[in-house]
Simulated assay, not measured.
Amino acid sequence: MAHFEGREAVVEQSAPTRATDTMTYRVATDVRALRAFVSAGALERGLSAERVELLTLAVSELATNTLQHTTGGGRVRLWAESGQLYCDVVDQGPTRSLGRSMPSADAVRGRGLAIVEQICDDVAVLASPGETVVRIRLSL
């Protein structure tokens, strides 16, 4: 697995390597079903209810970006290892840049990644041939 300490990392490897209970969900159009999948999976892996709400919000923002800005949808992977919960949102869109500031209150768009960065313990962009992964981490 790629370990990341900074706010942005670009590495070749995008899939979890040691986790044995990775759950995957295909993002097509129903973000409500995705939220239920993420919430249930995070609770099963020991994330507190309060943190589950944050994770669900973050994944919802990322999946909405996938649906709005790419073709063909994407997928979400969720797993826990070493006291951490990881979630990848994978699509064929362009690499995202991190470190964004929150847009002004009158801005219509552009809050998704800024929200994700504020509520997750760590966020990274991982690049591999043909796909972009936004990986988020929350401590269990």
Rank of each mutant, 00 (worst) to 15 (best):
T71R: 09
I115A: 06
A36R: 13
P16A: 04
T56K: 12
V52E: 04
E12L: 14
D21Y: 00
V108T: 12
Y86E: 01
G73N: 11
R7M: 13
D30E: 13
L113E: 06
E81A: 11
T71Q: 12
T64A: 12
G74V: 00
R32G: 10
Q68E: 13
V76K: 00
V76D: 02
C120W: 00
T66S: 14
D106I: 07
S104D: 14
R75N: 03
G130T: 09
E61K: 13
S139D: 05
I136G: 02
E131T: 04
A124V: 07
P129Q: 15
P129W: 03
I136V: 15
V76G: 01
V134R: 02
L98N: 08
S82W: 04
F37M: 13
E53Y: 07
G72M: 09
R7H: 10
A127F: 10
L43I: 12
L140Q: 12
L126W: 05
S97G: 12
L85W: 01
G112Y: 07
A49W: 09
A114E: 02
V116D: 01
C87P: 03
A2L: 10
L126E: 06
T56V: 15
R26N: 07
A80L: 04
R100I: 11
S104E: 14
R137Y: 03
V89G: 00
D106G: 09
S97D: 07
T24F: 04
T20C: 05
D121C: 03
D91R: 02
Q13H: 10
L55T: 05
V11F: 08
E131M: 05
A2T: 12
R26D: 06
T17S: 14
L55I: 06
R137V: 15
V125H: 11
D122T: 06
V134K: 03
